[in-house]
Simulated scan of single mutants.
Amino acid sequence: MDAIAFTLLGHSITWAQAAIGCAGTALLLLAATARAVWRIGQNRGLEAAVAAERAREMDDKVSEMNRAQAELSGRLQSMAEILASRQGDLARLMAERMDGLRQQVGAGLERNVQQTNENLGKLQERLAVIDAAQKNLTDLTSEVVTLKDVLANKQARGAYGQGRMEAIIKDGLPAAFYVFQPQLSNGRRPDCLITLPGDGRGLVIDAKFPLESFSLLREARGEDARKAAAQRVRGDVAVHVKDIAERYFLPGETQDIALLFVPSESIHADLHEHFDDVVQRAHRARIMIVSPSLLTMAIQLMQSLVRDARMREEARVIQTEVGRLLDDVRRLGERVDKLDGHFRQAQDDVAQIKTSAGKVTSRAERIAALEFEEPDRAPTLPGVIPMGRAAE
């Protein structure tokens, strides 16, 4: 064993030394191998612990995501229910307001139409009365009264003329526009006083025409008798015209013109044919000599004035009602515009709510679609040496 096995760097190595060196080297190798195996086992345990921790963290994150998703789903469902309830309330409120507005508009229009129909009905009734009176006056114009119809008694003739005049006036004018035998401020009483709309002064009509001279003129047989009768006619008519002018022309109370009624068409024609100077004198005194037909025409003209005044009054009433109807329609338009504005505001709010709900839904979908991939290498924990470096 003491024999020299070999020489190393000038030293002689025996077989015993070589065997001891080999055994030490083998022990060192075994120790290194054991340490390496121990480190490998320790690293594997750490990796298992890290993997378990990562799995636990992943489970916690998934649970948190599931909880958040459930909470978000609940909120979305609650928001959808609230939106549905609000939409139903809005629709019900709009329906109630539209029903109320429709009822108010319908009631207003129905009331205005009813009032307009009533006014038109009254207008038609008055026009029918006027047409009937006009027909009666037209029938009266066809009648011609001669001297044979004049009674012999003077009072009877006056009553006849008064009655004829009253019949014509009563058939042509409403009772509110005339009065018979009124008393003027000077104490005189004309046969009739007519007051027209728009003028407070009355129009005097006198029916006391002198007929005796005309009777004498008709009965005269000689030229002298006729001349005398004609002269009497001129004198009687002139005196009567003067009496009317002096008695019935009152400033501010009566018109500056008066009517002298002749109850016979034939006498009126003879007067204008043979006594033109008398007619002209009456005209200069502002007195018109009228026959039954002319009085009828004058009354018809007055009737037209009265009817026009009534029509203007009714037209003002209708115009007032139409103005009120236009105001109602204008207010209706304003309320419809306001309601339209409310509708548009509600639509804008609903559109904004839908936009917000869409954003929330898209974000929830993106969160639900997230995928967590494992990294290529596990993170290195502090104080742990990687396996490659340990091998080195």
Rank of each mutant, 00 (worst) to 15 (best):
V62E: 03
S73R: 01
A34R: 06
V37Y: 05
I40P: 00
S78H: 04
E47W: 09
A32N: 01
T33R: 02
T116A: 14
R97L: 02
L101W: 08
L90N: 15
R86M: 03
E57T: 14
E53S: 04
N43M: 03
A91F: 00
A52N: 10
I40D: 11
A34S: 10
Q103F: 05
A95E: 02
E57C: 04
M94H: 06
L76V: 03
V113P: 08
N117Y: 03
Q69D: 05
S85P: 00
E47N: 06
A51Y: 02
M58A: 15
D60S: 09
T116H: 13
E81K: 01
Q114S: 15
R92I: 06
A48T: 03
R54T: 11
A80L: 07
Q87L: 05
L72H: 08
L76A: 12
D89L: 10
A68N: 09
G100N: 10
M65W: 08
S63F: 07
N66T: 10
Q114Y: 13
M58P: 02
A95M: 02
R44E: 13
G108F: 09
I40N: 12
G106R: 13
R97Y: 05
N66Q: 01
A91K: 05
A32F: 09
R67I: 00
S85D: 11
Q104D: 12
E71P: 00
A95Q: 04
R111L: 12
E81R: 09
V62G: 08
L76W: 05
E71S: 03
S85Q: 06
L109W: 02
L101A: 13
A51I: 14
M94V: 12
W38Q: 15
Q69C: 07
A80M: 13
A55N: 09
K61S: 06
G45Q: 12
E81Y: 03
L30P: 00
E96K: 01
A36H: 10
R39I: 07
G100H: 11
M98L: 05
Q69M: 11
L83I: 11
Q87M: 04
L93P: 02
A36I: 14
R97G: 07
S78I: 03
L109P: 01
M94T: 15
A55G: 07
R75M: 11
G108K: 13
R67S: 10
Q115R: 05
V113Q: 15
G41M: 08
R44L: 08
G41P: 00
L72G: 12
W38L: 12
E71A: 00
R44D: 04
G106L: 05
E96S: 07
V62K: 02
N66E: 06
E57Q: 15
A80R: 07
G108E: 14
M98P: 03
R54W: 02
E64I: 00
Q115N: 12
A70R: 04
D89Q: 05
R54M: 14
A70G: 07
S78C: 01
V50Q: 13
K61P: 01
N66Y: 00
A49W: 06
A36M: 11
A84P: 04
D59M: 09
V105R: 12
A31D: 07
G100P: 01
E64H: 06
D59P: 02
I40W: 12
M98K: 13
G106W: 10
E110F: 03
L90F: 03
M79R: 10
L109C: 08
L46G: 11
M79Q: 13
R86H: 01
